[in-house]
């Protein structure tokens, strides 16, 4: 029987140079759900994602995916495992066409994968990408670029998608559309782990929430429970979370 948790951090310690950011981070990501990670600046949210996706060396502790250890494995291997990562900011190749940007999502696909069919399927899902397939990617709006990044990730039919600050720089209307898309992906069976500064909006759209503070997990509960926890407001206003 598959474990209820798809991804697990166990006492993960990681950081940059001499600085340690994650001080024994532990939390689990439920399978098939949308989980939002929140916390003030410097809590280690993006660092946790980078550690999970093999972009930052884990000094001690373990990261498990489907109960198999994936600590310090390279991104290409993790893609093969079914994990995709959509980092914050603009992550497209502006001088290449939308279609060619999309095609990069399948670079690490196993041999024999019918990428053409998958690209067609993804473009069927996102009409804007089909319409602008031959356009230079830099001509897309901010929201369209984010859709392109997510669509690129979907090409490998991932089981887990890590998304860092997807709404950054988007208009409120586009943010709404983006969250609707993420909900749709979750319904389709993809487990989503998201970092979002717009904590309230993200939690309203999520099943679970994880609160990080100073590189440790301080709270994990249903998104609804976290939303109604009075300590959360205090945490974002500069006070610590007294557990």
């Amino acid at each position: 029987m598959a474990a209820a948790e798809l991804l697990k951090f166990e006492n993960v310690v990681a950081g940059y140079g001499k600085e340690t950011i994650l001080h024994g981070l532990s939390f689990a990501v439920p399978r098939g759900a949308m989980t939002t990670v929140i916390g003030p600046n410097g809590a280690g949210k993006s660092t946790a994602f980078k550690a999970a996706f093999g972009m930052l060396a884990v000094r001690s502790g373990r990261i498990l995916f489907e109960d198999r250890e994936i600590t310090n494995r390279a991104p290409r291997e993790l893609i093969g495992e079914g994990i995709c990562y959509v980092p914050q900011g603009r992550n497209i190749f502006p001088e290449l066409s939308v279609l060619h940007n999309l095609e990069f999502g399948g670079v690490a696909a196993p041999k024999g994968t019918d990428l053409k069919a998958r690209i067609e399927a993804v473009m069927d899902r996102f009409a804007v990408l089909r319409r602008k397939a031959r356009h230079q990617a830099s001509t897309l709006s901010g929201g369209e670029q984010k859709i392109l990044e997510i669509a690129r990730g979907l090409l490998l039919q991932p089981r887990l998608m890590l998304i860092d600050e997807p709404s950054i720089g988007l208009s409120p209307l586009l943010v709404e559309e983006l969250f609707a898309l993420l909900r749709e992906l979750r319904k389709g069976g993809i487990t989503l782990l998201m970092i979002e500064q717009n904590a309230k909006r993200a939690l309203e759209n999520s099943d679970y929430g994880v609160v990080l503070e100073l590189g440790r997990m301080r709270l994990q509960d249903s998104a609804r429970a976290i939303l109604s926890d009075p300590r959360i407001g205090q945490l974002f206003l500069g006070g610590g979370l007294s557990a």
Partner: peptide
Amino acid sequence: TLTGRCMQAAAQNPAVARLLGIR
């Protein structure tokens, strides 16, 4: 060619190229 485009991607943004599994 896909290899040629991967070379362009690696030149334009190596960090993102690596995330996508481009060698």
